[in-house]
Nucleic acid binder design. Structure first.
Lengths: 326, 326
DNA sequence: ATGAAAGCGCTAACAT
DNA sequence: ATGTTAGCGCTTTCAT
């Protein structure tokens, strides 16, 4: 009845429970013969250690708590990468979803109840003060959002470099009239705007910034402004993929892409990869973001000093919306 | 040091641990005065019960294990709805993500290690035999996939009805020449095709099925076939939203939507709601799917008989890609 | 290398 | 209504 316990395995293998524990944690202190015998007994019974008991018995839970937005596909990528990063550090992940009907603080609270050793928050919207409060009780690392809060570490993509890569790609193709569709006051927007502007100036070209925003609608609206303000531009860098998709939808009515106009997005979302969109874009390095987040959390736990604001370079994903100017 | 335990709260409130336990589970057996005093003491210390210990102490974990695809936004909706459904039944959720680098069986295994009472698998790809094996040790309910496996309950959307709703919507608008872009051998495709065909026949109209598939590309390709095979059709029901988006991308080059052609998708994905797409579509009822999944799992736990294949009616989401024929 | 025994922080059955 | 006591299934000293 019920699942076999450590006791059952010990009995079958003819050893004490302690030994079974040693074997299953592969800790030192058991002969190879015993190890084999215990494992065989365990396998025969279909034994699997009870994770709850394991957590309770240990001083350290070796659990990393992660909150994520269940709708953001970028968070999906990060979660996947975090599993890998955590595992190689001997940690397990506790997932807690954030959704319209499930607030971030609830999600965090439930992680705390599991006694996670550290918190990794993906794109949190909590106020800096709330984040700082969390950081007082355990290491707290914020991923993909630029915030300054005492004791909180942040790991994010270097958006200034991302914009630079976009512009340099267009320069290399031979473009000189390059406009930027702005992201308004969306997080990341100032950095991306700066990267664009600096790179243009370094190339002794005149920056031209068209107001915009993060949604498809705002991209579509920006397309109309663009046609008025920068009719002679041969290329644009757009704040993000969503906006770029809206922009493309309108712009294609009067321009062939990429023959007459090159367009480059940002984020490398799923929609950018769709074959009928096939948008050149800038990708965030999720494996590195995840690895750094994990490393930072563990460093804090170990009492090692950390870099409170780490920035990871993104990469360019060339697709078919960019090409040489005609 | 460390977080306060039940012992600390008991000491501060001047009662025994058992009373504190009673109060925090709000179980009967404590006077209102005591209850208030304990709660006050707990609040002062910032006490929160240790979830691990709670799990271990209880005979029943009151934990529902959920596997989901971290990339599927539909799964995101379901997870959110499951939180709600589980909570109102006094259960908590344990989430385990499935991703390219994290197999479904791994995800399930980790859930089992937490001693979840039941498993809720979202769109699993495990073989029926594997599912049946799981169902032997605990209630196992499959959501959003039609499978037959002994002991496994499935909860899914009634796709035949979904297609019927789509066709009826078009009939109500006055269309009579309605084609269907097929989904090939994708799960759900036969049901949707049947729903279309039956509804057409019931209206004494001739069904016309154009081969297709679940991706944007296949939708785009189907658009070309459609123009050849059904040039006089005034409306189409497309297998799913992704395919519909590809279809629209091509069809708009020669037809105005909805003036010359009405298009209706299926799934109500995020992309369908995008304002520049604004696709009329069929939505799955995630709250009900979640509620039924939970209810079914709990019924199995209670030993109550269950309906092994439950089907939930979808609803029509009218947007701007459908309108009366000219 | 192996075993005995004391927790981990709760829940739950029982006694008062 | 309140307190006592024995687990839950592990981990972790500490002996042997």
């Amino acid at each position: 009845m019920g699942r076999p316990t450590m006791e059952d395995v010990a009995a079958l293998a003819g050893v004490s429970r302690a030994l079974v524990s040693i074997v299953y944690r592969d800790a030192p202190g058991a002969s190879d013969a015993t190890r084999a015998r215990v494992l065989a007994a365990g396998a025969e019974l279909g034994y699997r250690p009870d994770h709850r008991a394991r957590l309770l018995g240990r001083t350290r839970t070796r659990l990393l708590g992660v909150t994520f937005d269940v709708q953001a596909s970028f968070h999906g990528d990060l979660v996947e990468a975090l599993y890998t990063a955590a595992e190689s550090a001997g940690y397990d992940l506790a997932l807690s979803a954030v959704a319209p009907s499930r607030s971030e603080s609830r999600a965090v609270q439930s992680l705390l109840d599991y006694r996670c050793e550290a918190l990794i928050l993906l794109g949190p919207t909590l106020k800096p003060s709330a984040l700082a409060a969390l950081a007082e009780s355990q290491p707290t690392v914020v991923v993909a959002r630029k915030v300054r809060a005492p004791g909180v570490d942040v790991v994010r993509t270097d958006d200034t470099t991302g914009s630079r890569l976009a512009v340099e790609h267009l320069l290399a193709l031979g473009h000189t009239k390059i406009a930027h569709i702005d992201g308004g006051k969306t997080p990341g927007s100032p950095e991306r705007r700066t990267g664009y502007r600096n790179t243009m100036r370094a190339a002794r070209l005149t920056p031209l910034i068209v107001p915009g925003g993060p949604t498809e609608d705002e991209g579509a609206r920006a397309a109309k402004t663009f046609l008025d303000d920068a009719p002679r531009a041969t290329a644009v860098t757009v704040f993000n993929d969503r906006s770029a998709v809206g922009f493309l939808d309108i712009i294609r009515q009067s321009r062939r892409v990429p023959d007459e106009l090159s367009v480059i997005g940002y984020d490398n979302t799923t929609v950018a990869a769709l074959s009928h969109i096939d948008l050149t874009t800038i990708a965030q390095d999720t494996p590195r973001l995840a690895a750094h987040a994990t490393t930072t959390a563990l460093a804090r736990l170990a009492g090692t000093p950390t870099t409170p604001d780490q920035t990871i370079p993104p990469t360019l994903i060339p697709r078919t919306t960019t090409g040489p100017p005609r």
